[in-house]
Simulated scan of single mutants.
Amino acid sequence: MSQIFARNMTWKEYQAKVEDHILILPVGSTEQHGPHLPLGVDCIIAEKYSESIAEKVKAVIAPTITYGYKSQPASGGGPLFPGTVDLNGSTLTSLIYDVLKEFIADGWKNILIMSGHYENDAFLAEACDLLLRDQKEEFPKILLSNWWDNISPELLPTIFDEVEFKGWAMEHAAITETSMMMYFTPDLVHEDLITDDGIENAPTYQRFPPSKNLIPASGCLYTGKSSTAEKGRLIVENVSTNIISFLKKEFTVERKEIYVTNSSINK
């Protein structure tokens, strides 16, 4: 799979793909994910989804953006934990704007931003809007998406078969992210440290400065128990299929003749 990453290409190899490939830009964050998952969960998941998509369509994966907008206490633990490194909203907007402007200057017409961090989306949208708001032509076109908005509702009862689904904000380091990490990178998951910790009643407001007593010392917002690699596989296959469906609608996407099994994304 190394040949799909722009970072592994020469400039001539990269240039040769601009006309008939999609460019995928993974965007994550660097933040705590409890005692059982690494700081780079959002980056890993965004990049692995990009790989999964690139197995089915002609795509090049741009270097991953590894820092994101401020982690919020009730959806990521906030700035209360070492290792969480945040960007201001204006910084993230400017970063994404500048990167996209360069890619468009290279000739890319079809660009997908694959977000893996809940708090990023408004600033990614702002960058895209500022860049293309005065454009009259249909292309270049940028699509912004994430994994949680692309899970089919009928799959949720299978994923949350033992505990209640309490919303995506509460799924930080919980069942979905833990299951996907078990599937993508099992060697980075400390299964023995998965906890039942969580917020009993999530607040309906935000407080500044954030309360140090809002979330457990573990950093977990909801239980990660009942996570499995099989659930991760089901999520990844479902989400990837749904994303590819709208890529085919919005872009001119050529399916590859030879399909690679999903297991290859772990290699």
Rank of each mutant, 00 (worst) to 15 (best):
A122E: 14
E119F: 07
L193Q: 14
N110C: 06
S115D: 15
D134E: 14
H172G: 03
V163S: 05
W168H: 11
I151C: 05
L130I: 11
Y118D: 07
F103M: 09
W148Y: 13
L144V: 10
T176I: 14
L193D: 10
W147T: 06
A174W: 00
E126P: 09
S152K: 13
K166Y: 06
T178M: 01
E164N: 09
D121L: 15
S145H: 08
E177W: 04
R133V: 14
E171T: 01
G107I: 08
A127M: 04
I194Q: 04
S179A: 05
S179F: 00
F160L: 06
L112A: 04
E137P: 06
A122R: 15
I113F: 11
M182Q: 12
I113K: 08
A169G: 13
A122H: 11
I142E: 01
S115C: 11
K141C: 01
M182G: 04
E171M: 01
V163H: 06
I151K: 04
T178E: 01
S115H: 11
S145P: 04
A125W: 14
I104F: 07
Y183S: 11
H117C: 02
T178H: 01
W147E: 08
V163Q: 04
G167T: 10
K109M: 09
T195P: 07
A125V: 15
I113W: 10
S115E: 08
K109D: 06
E162S: 13
